[in-house]
Computed example of a mutant assay.
Amino acid sequence: MTIKTVSIVGLGALGILFGHHLSKRMPKGSLRIVADKGRVEKYRNEHVYCNGKRCDFHFITPEEIVEPADLVLFTVKNEGLNDAIHAVRNHIGKNTIILSALNGITSEAVIGETYGMDKILYCVAQGMDAVKVKNELTYENMGMLCFGERNAEMNSEKVQAVAAFFDEMSVPYEVVPDMYKHLWSKFMLNVGVNQTVAVHESNYGEIQKAGKARDMMIAAMREVMLLSEKEGIPLTEEDIDYWLEVLSKLSPEGKPSMAQDVEAKRYSEVELFSGTVLKMGEKHGVSTPVNKEFYERIKAIESNYN
Rank of each mutant, 00 (worst) to 15 (best):
G143E: 00
I105S: 02
K132Q: 11
G116C: 07
P172T: 09
A130W: 06
M169G: 10
L121M: 10
N151G: 06
K158A: 04
V133T: 15
L183Q: 05
G112D: 04
M144L: 13
G127W: 01
A101R: 11
M144R: 15
W184V: 01
A161P: 11
A152C: 10
K119W: 09
V175A: 15
E108L: 11
Q160K: 15
W184A: 00
G112F: 05
N135C: 02
Y180Q: 15
G143A: 01
A125N: 02
S100C: 05
M179E: 13
P177L: 00
F166W: 15
L145T: 08
A101K: 07
E157K: 15
E140D: 11
V133Y: 15
G148H: 10
G112A: 01
V171Q: 12
V162E: 05
Y173N: 00
P177F: 00
Y173E: 01
S100W: 03
D167V: 08
N151S: 10
M154I: 07
K158E: 00
A163Q: 10
S170F: 10
L102G: 06
K119T: 04
Q126H: 10
F166E: 04
E149W: 02
A109T: 03
V171I: 15
T106E: 11
Y180W: 14
K132R: 12
A101M: 14
M154R: 08
L121W: 10
S185H: 08
L189V: 09
A109V: 00
D129V: 03
I98V: 09
M188F: 01
N141V: 08
P172Y: 10
G104F: 11
L99P: 02
E136Y: 10
V176Y: 12
D167Q: 06
S156K: 12
E113N: 11
V159A: 15
K134Y: 05
A125D: 03
A101P: 03
D167E: 12
S185P: 00
D178S: 14
L189C: 03
D118E: 14
V124N: 02
F165D: 02
S107W: 00
I111E: 14
L183D: 02
L189I: 03
M144A: 08
W184I: 02
A152Y: 11
A152R: 06
Q126K: 07
K132Y: 05
V162M: 04
S156M: 07
G127R: 01
M188S: 01
M142K: 11
A163K: 13
I105N: 06
V176N: 08
E174K: 02
M169T: 13
A125I: 01
E108M: 04
D118Q: 06
